[in-house]
Simulated scan of single mutants.
Amino acid sequence: MSHYLPQTDNPDGFSVLLIDTHASIPALLVCADQRIRAAKNLLQCLSLMSGNSSHPHDLSCICEASALLLQEGCDLLGVLTLREDTVH
């Protein structure tokens, strides 16, 4: 496994956002937890919005932000899985 792994949500052809695969397990878990909780909070806000008080663009922005945060969290958890596989 390379030292830096590009995140899945990088735009095609660009590896700008990278995950340090040598970061400590607690650091990777904290980052994954932060992103997954932030996505959960956005989705919770979405569930409390009324159809009359929201603009269609707002819904799209919340969904996009949630998807990016969840993908980053999954990518971080994926690094932990890869590291676990290399140990065994």
Score class of each variant (00 low, 15 high):
1 M>L: 11
2 S>A: 13
3 H>M: 14
3 H>T: 13
6 P>D: 07
7 Q>P: 01
7 Q>R: 08
8 T>F: 01
9 D>H: 15
9 D>Q: 12
10 N>V: 10
10 N>I: 09
11 P>E: 08
12 D>P: 14
12 D>L: 12
12 D>Y: 06
13 G>D: 03
14 F>D: 01
15 S>L: 04
15 S>W: 05
16 V>T: 13
16 V>I: 14
16 V>E: 06
16 V>Y: 15
17 L>H: 01
18 L>H: 01
18 L>Q: 05
19 I>V: 07
20 D>W: 07
21 T>N: 06
22 H>E: 11
23 A>M: 05
24 S>G: 08
24 S>V: 00
25 I>G: 07
25 I>L: 10
26 P>A: 04
27 A>V: 06
28 L>I: 03
28 L>M: 00
29 L>H: 07
29 L>D: 08
31 C>V: 09
32 A>S: 13
32 A>R: 02
33 D>R: 15
37 R>H: 08
38 A>H: 02
39 A>V: 07
40 K>E: 12
40 K>Q: 10
40 K>P: 00
40 K>W: 12
41 N>F: 11
41 N>T: 08
42 L>W: 02
42 L>I: 14
43 L>G: 04
44 Q>P: 03
45 C>N: 13
45 C>E: 15
46 L>K: 13
48 L>W: 10
48 L>H: 12
49 M>K: 11
49 M>P: 00
51 G>A: 09
51 G>M: 04
52 N>D: 11
52 N>L: 06
53 S>L: 08
54 S>R: 15
54 S>K: 15
55 H>E: 10
55 H>Y: 13
55 H>P: 02
56 P>C: 00
56 P>E: 08
57 H>S: 10
57 H>P: 02
57 H>L: 11
58 D>N: 06
58 D>G: 11
59 L>V: 15
60 S>K: 13
60 S>Y: 12
61 C>M: 13
62 I>M: 09
62 I>T: 09
63 C>E: 10
64 E>V: 14
65 A>G: 11
66 S>Q: 00
67 A>C: 13
68 L>E: 04
68 L>V: 07
69 L>W: 03
70 L>Q: 05
70 L>Y: 04
71 Q>N: 14
71 Q>F: 03
74 C>S: 12
75 D>K: 04
76 L>P: 02
77 L>M: 02
77 L>H: 00
77 L>K: 07
77 L>Y: 01
78 G>M: 04
79 V>N: 02
80 L>G: 05
80 L>Q: 06
83 R>H: 05
83 R>C: 03
83 R>A: 02
83 R>M: 04
84 E>I: 05
85 D>A: 09
86 T>I: 12
86 T>L: 09
88 H>Y: 15
88 H>R: 05
88 H>P: 02
